[in-house]
Computed example of a mutant assay.
Amino acid sequence: MPADRESPNLHALILCGGTSRRMGRDKATLDFAGEPMLARVVRRLSATIPVENILCVAANGQALPPLPSPVRIVFDRQEDCGPLEGLATGLSALADADAVFVTTCDAPLIVPEVPEFLARQLANHDAVVPRINGQLYPLTAVYQPRVASVADSRLARGERRVIDWVTELDVRYLSREELTAVDPELVSMRNCNTQEELEELLEVHAKTRKHVGR
């Protein structure tokens, strides 16, 4: 897929199966401004990605909030293997996609234009990953589905760190300056693992809703 051209077959993968230990409750069903957090992420992504191209990866036995019927749901093949297992499961399920945008169910301010913007930079790279002040954001990124095999190999060796997996890939890193062109406040990279972080995002939402929408 050449750089700076729209992806004809862009999909979205939402990771939902985290243990939410610090939050103390399932973040997928957590209320955010009047709707379940996962439902909100799906709704925002569906503004630019066909809803039938959205896939959620959940933990075995996890109950998700009601979602539009075209949204697909798959479950981790192995338990307690962290987000790399969710990535491998989801990317394998989306093998026919040209590009897969990855996010998490606790990123309620995702800007709908971000997935396509990242996908336009993919070309023949394995992935497009934001790098802001030296920090990588591999769970707000775009991947070629083929990299699922690299994740599977790492998991088979008991290696579960997503950052280590990314270092094996051919990555196009995006800078803060590039990202602010589509997400001026970089809210797409913000998630919430604690009640305090949730309250902070609700405050950001209240202040920026005229820019990021409902």
Rank of each mutant, 00 (worst) to 15 (best):
F75V: 15
L55A: 05
D126E: 08
G18Q: 00
E200G: 06
V71M: 01
A148C: 11
A151G: 05
V147T: 15
A12S: 14
P2T: 11
P70I: 04
H211E: 10
L10E: 02
E196G: 10
L179H: 00
A33Q: 11
V71Y: 00
L174I: 14
S175M: 07
G90N: 03
V212C: 10
V51Y: 06
E185M: 14
P138F: 03
L201H: 07
V111P: 01
R154S: 06
S188F: 03
A59G: 10
N60L: 14
E200H: 11
L186M: 11
A59K: 14
R214M: 12
D152V: 06
V51D: 02
L30M: 14
G24K: 10
V114G: 00
E6C: 13
S46H: 01
V166R: 01
T29F: 06
D126A: 12
P108Y: 01
S7Q: 13
L186S: 06
H125S: 11
V41T: 10
L64S: 07
A206P: 04
L202K: 14
R161T: 12
S46R: 05
V51N: 04
R146Q: 12
W165S: 00
R43P: 08
T104M: 15
V204N: 04
H211L: 14
E159R: 15
L169H: 04
E196D: 09
T167D: 09
G18Y: 02
D76M: 03
E116C: 09
A12K: 04
D98W: 07
A95R: 12
H11M: 02
G18I: 03
G158M: 09
E185Q: 14
N60S: 14
A123C: 08
L67G: 03
V162W: 00
R43T: 15
P50Q: 07
L64K: 02
P50H: 11
D106T: 06
A99G: 03
P8N: 13
E6M: 13
R214H: 11
R5L: 15
A107I: 05
N191A: 11
G86R: 01
P130R: 01
L38Y: 02
V162I: 15
F32S: 02
Q144M: 13
A3H: 06
F117N: 04
R131V: 13
L45N: 04
T89S: 07
A148H: 13
S175Y: 04
S46F: 04
P2Y: 08
S175F: 06
L91D: 00
M23E: 05
T48K: 15
L179Q: 01
V212T: 11
A107H: 14
K210Q: 11
S92D: 08
A156G: 08
A97C: 09
S175H: 05
R120V: 04
R176W: 09
Q62T: 08
S7Y: 05
T48D: 13
E178F: 08
V41K: 04
A63N: 10
V162T: 12
P145G: 07
D76Y: 08
N9W: 12
D4H: 15
C56T: 14
M37K: 01
N191Q: 07
L155V: 02
T104L: 15
F32W: 05
A127K: 00
Y137D: 03
E177V: 15
T103L: 03
D96S: 13
P70D: 04
L67V: 06
E199G: 05
V212S: 07
H205D: 08
N53W: 06
R157N: 10
R72Q: 15
I54V: 15
V162K: 00
T89W: 00
V142Y: 00
N9V: 09
P108H: 03
F101K: 00
N191W: 13
